[in-house]
Design a protein around this nucleic acid. Sequence first.
DNA 1: GGATAATGTAAAGCAAACTTTACGTCAAGT
DNA 2: ACTTGACGTAAAGTTTGCTTTACATTATCC
Lengths: 68, 68
Amino acid sequence: MKNKLSEHRKKNGLSQDKLAEKLGVSRQTIISIEKGRYNPSLPLAMIIAEIFQTSVEDIFILEEDDYK
Amino acid sequence: MKNKLSEHRKKNGLSQDKLAEKLGVSRQTIISIEKGRYNPSLPLAMIIAEIFQTSVEDIFILEEDDYK
DNA sequence: GGATAATGTAAAGCAAACTTTACGTCAAGT
DNA sequence: ACTTGACGTAAAGTTTGCTTTACATTATCC
């Protein structure tokens, strides 16, 4: 999985800290997702899409080796 | 989170077993998702949407208490 | 040069997703 | 009556998502 979280975040003028707060998760979670260390859970991904007023597929991009 | 997995699966004439096989997961995973025992991971949700040629949002529906 | 904001790493621990195995039920078909 | 297919439950174990804490780096700004 690749993702465009940091692009969306920056476009919306949010720091990792502010975004984490909005989403109700820790800043570490944002960093880890942006850095591709792990994938968000489904509900978290959907809330992220909702906040940026777009679709899950617009932010998160499947790759060959997903799953697994 | 609510989901329409079993609707989509039946509409496509698949048993839980066949779907699990297509997705590369266990049958237990399908049962658990359909029964709402837990949410799929993001990549799994996206592959499900892909298989049924629709969007994640069309199959999985956010509710008030997501997250968390 | 010290303060502050933003981003990053690391590690320990808890919770959720997923697997495997094994067994139960019910309907349909022969 | 028994087999077979589809759906279900339960429990133990591994992996992954997420939290918390603590510390490092870089840039800006007074």
